[in-house]
C-alpha cells in the first residue's frame, strides 16, 4: 500500500498531533499541580525519557520499511527525529533554566565533572547538526551520501542517551536496561543487514549484474 500525497499529508498531520501528546500531558500535569513534590525533577525526567523514546522510534522506521514493504514510512522519519531533538532541547532547557537557573559556573562544572551529564550533553550537541540539516535544501546541498553519513550519528547519539540514563540512576537500572536492550536490537538489525550484504558481495552475486561492470562496491567501513 502506498498512500497518495494527500493521504500522506493527513498521516503526517495525525502523527504530528500524536507526537505532541507527551508535551501536552506534561503541561496539563503541571497546570493541575500533579507532578509530585519535586516538579522540576519530574519535568526533567519526563522530557529526557521522551527524547530517548523518540530516538528509538526514529530508529524503528528503517526496519519497519524493510519488513513491511511500506517504503513511504521513511517520509515520516524526519518529523520523528525532529521531535526527538525538540524533547531533547526541552530536557536541556529544563536543566539549564529550572534546575540550575543559568548558574553557568555550576553547569560547566557539571558537564566536565559528572560523566552522566557529560554524555547527555554530548548527545544533545551531536543532535544539533542533524536537526539543522533536516531539510530538503540541506540534503541537496550536502549530497545524499554525505547527508546520510552525517545522519548515521543517530547511532552513537542513542547509545550516549542510554548511557546517560544508565549512569544517572542510583541503583535500580531496570528502566535504562529496557531502553538499552531495544537499542541493541535496533542496532543489531543494522549490523546483521550489513553482514548479509557483505556475504552477498563475497558470494559475487553482484558480479553477474553488468551495470556494476564487474566491480564490487564496498559498503562497509572505509
Amino acid at each position: 500500500m502506498t498512500p497518495s500525497n494527500s493521504q500522506l499529508a493527513t498521516i503526517k498531520t495525525v502523527l504530528f498531533a500524536l507526537c505532541l501528546i507527551p508535551a501536552f500531558l506534561l503541561w496539563r500535569s503541571f497546570e493541575m499541580d500533579s507532578l509530585g513534590a519535586n516538579p522540576i525533577e519530574a519535568i526533567t525526567r519526563n522530557t529526557g525519557e521522551w527524547t530517548l523514546r523518540f530516538l528509538l522510534i526514529t530508529l524503528c522506521v528503517t526496519p519497519l520499511r524493510k519488513y513491511s514493504g511500506w517504503h513511504w514510512v521513511v517520509r515520516l522519519r524526519r518529523m520523528l527525529g525532529l521531535f526527538a531533538f525538540a524533547y531533547g532541547a526541552a530536557h536541556l532547557s529544563t536543566y539549564l533554566w529550572l534546575d540550575q537557573f543559568f548558574d553557568w559556573q555550576a553547569i560547566a562544572k557539571d558537564i566536565l565533572k559528572r560523566p552522566f551529564i557529560t554524555v547527555g550533553f554530548a548527545a544533545l550537541v551531536l543532535m544539533t547538526p542533524l536537526a539543522l540539516t533536516s531539510s530538503n535544501f540541506a540534503i541537496r546541498k550536502l549530497g545524499g551520501r554525505r547527508w546520510q553519513s552525517l545522519h548515521r550519528a543517530i547511532y552513537p547519539i542513542a547509545m550516549l542517551g542510554c548511557i546517560h540514563f544508565w549512569w544517572l540512576v542510583k541503583k535500580d537500572v531496570t528502566e535504562p536496561l529496557i531502553y538499552s536492550v531495544i537499542l541493541a536490537v535496533l542496532l543489531g538489525l543494522r549490523a546483521w543487514w550489513r553482514e548479509l550484504e557483505r556475504r552477498k558481495q563475497l558470494a559475487g552475486s553482484y558480479l553477474q549484474q553488468p551495470r556494476f561492470e564487474g566491480k564490487v562496491i564496498k559498503i562497509f567501513a572505509k
Binding site: A37, I40, F101, K109, K113, R114, W167
Partner: peptide, 19 residues
Amino acid sequence: VDHPRWSQATERRIGEFTK
C-alpha cells in the same frame, strides 16, 4: 565534598523554585 554524580554545593528545598 562532591558526590561523583551530583554537586553537593546546593540543594532544592522541596516546594521552592530556586536552589
